[in-house]
Every structure is written in C-alpha cells, then in structure tokens.
C-alpha cells in the first residue's frame, strides 16, 4: 500500500513565493507582500486592487471587495439567501460557519446574484476564500446550480469567480462531494441551452471546485500566479518525493500546459469580462 499521506513528511516543499494572502501580523498600517516581501502601506493596497505595487503579486480579495471592483454601481441583486446546516453533525462546524458569516458578512462561501458588468447583465458568483477556505458545501453547490438555472431561465450568461483552497467542504462529507456532480450537471444543462459561461480562477482554485464547475467554462481565465490544480502542492511533493517545478500549479503553468484560455491582471479583469460578455449577446 502506497502511503499517500505520511505522518511525518521527509520534507515539505513550500515555495518561498507561495502566495498566502494578506498577512495579518497585527500591524494596522503595513502588510508584507507574500511574494517579494516588500512592505506595503495598507491604504495603498485598497487603491491598487490588492496588487503589490512592487512585484505585481495579487493578494486575495474578499467577495464583497471583488463585487465592488467588478460590477456596475447598484446593479447587484443577490440570490435568495441560503444557509448551511450540519448534515453529519460534524463537531465545530456550526461555530466555524457563524464565525465566517460574522467576519465576512456572507451567508456562506459564495456571493451570488444578478449583476451588470459594463452594462451587460449576467449571473455573477464570487467564492470567498475566507469562508472555510472557499470550500463547496451544500449551500455553495446549490447556489451555483440555481445560478445556472436562473441563467437558462432569463437567458443570461454566467460569470463565476472561483477561489477555494480545499475545494470540497469536508464537514459535509459525501454531500459536499455530490455538489461536484450537481454543479457540473448544471453547467452541462446551461451549456446545452447555448449560453455563455465564463470561469475566472483566482488564488487558490483547487480540489473539488477546480474538478467541477470551475473547469467547465466556455472560457477559463485566471489571475496571475493563482494556484490552480487538483491535489495540493504539499501532497504532490510528499507523494512523489520529487522536486516540484518552480512554477508548478500556477496560472502560468496552467496556461503553458493548455489548461486555461488566458491570464488577466486584476486591473484589466473588469474590461476583459465586459468585452467577452459583449461577444456573447
């Protein structure tokens, strides 16, 4: 039996440039860039759309921040609110949800609804990494599915901004896994209706999210250096005991290997999405 998951790894490969989001060192004014280690004034970070002005590293953004960045003012109409239950009675799950809801002002890991981007109506879903790693439980799966169904109903394109570290939401066990099938099928139905689905992968898009709806876009875009893949890099390093390529599982690696259509810097994302929506009227 191959031991895929070793208790004590011989080594763990963590790239020094591994993007890890905004560090909360407690400093109210400054953050350190995870990529180039420069100190950045926090207020400046807001202005640069959370992109490091020294090296161009894209910090993670909350779903609300991203919504503000992408949609036309006052155009967002949120979907019917759904909240998670604890189907397996998993210990500590309710508390985790309550904390994330409070911290992010979200009902669950996705902010979704109808919106306009540069005047084009669409269904827009944004996954927030901060909500239990941006994982897909029943609520995220159901909201995405409903989003595609609403798109078919109203003949609207769908844009989903993914960013989920673990992919599946372990605390919901098999129900979480089945959301992969549910969302993939929703994309399939939507696609057969001849409608346009744009998938945007942000840091990090992994596991069950990547292995379902996020991979099934008519067009797949990614933000620079976003981690994209199925298995986490540490698992790959531990399993294979090989040195990982320096750009392993980055957006650039995915592009080079033919897995995505393009990489779009955050400053150009809204324009690019607007343009693509205008081609699919």
């Amino acid at each position: 039996m191959l031991r895929v998951f070793r208790s004590k790894p011989k080594y763990a490969t963590v790239r020094s440039s591994a993007p890890d989001g905004e560090r909360r060192d407690g400093d109210p004014l400054w953050v350190r860039c995870d990529s180039c280690s420069s100190l950045i004034y926090k207020k400046e970070l807001h202005k640069t759309l959370y992109v490091c002005s020294h090296c161009g590293f894209h910090f993670r953004m909350s779903a609300w921040e991203r919504l503000r960045m992408l949609v036309d003012e006052n155009s967002f109409q949120p979907a019917e609110p759904l909240v998670s239950v604890n189907p397996l009675g998993f210990p500590g799950y309710e508390e985790k949800i309550a904390q994330s809801q409070e911290a992010l002002q979200l009902d669950d890991g996705i902010l979704i609804g109808e919106a306009k981007i540069q005047g084009h109506s669409c269904v827009l879903g944004i996954i927030d990494f901060g909500f239990i790693g941006g994982s897909m439980g029943s609520v995220v799966g159901e909201q995405i599915t409903r989003g595609f169904e609403y798109g078919i109903d109203k003949q609207l394109p769908v844009v989903i901004i993914s960013g989920g570290g673990g992919g599946a939401r372990m605390q919901e066990g098999i129900f979480s896994l089945m959301q992969m099938a549910k969302t993939a099928q929703a994309v399939g139905r939507f696609s057969k209706a001849g409608l346009f689905y744009l998938s945007v992968l942000t840091h990090p898009t992994m596991g069950g999210v990547y292995a379902s709806f996020a991979s099934l876009g008519d067009i797949i875009l990614a933000e620079p250096k976003a981690l994209i893949g199925f298995a986490g890099p540490r698992i790959v390093a531990e399993t294979t005991r090989q040195q990982l390529p320096p750009d392993f599982q980055t957006a650039e690696y995915a592009l080079k290997n033919g897995m995505i259509d393009g990489i779009v810097p955050r400053s150009e994302l809204k324009d690019t999405i607007g343009k693509l929506l205008s081609f699919h009227l």
């Binding site: 998670s84 239950v85 029943s138 609520v139 919901e172 959301q179």
Partner: peptide, 8 residues
C-alpha cells in the same frame, strides 16, 4: 442532493 436552509 444537499442539506441547507432558506432564510428570510
């Protein structure tokens, strides 16, 4: 498949 709750 899925367990969730709609809220007001």
């Amino acid at each position: 498949i899925g367990h969730f709750q709609a809220v007001q």
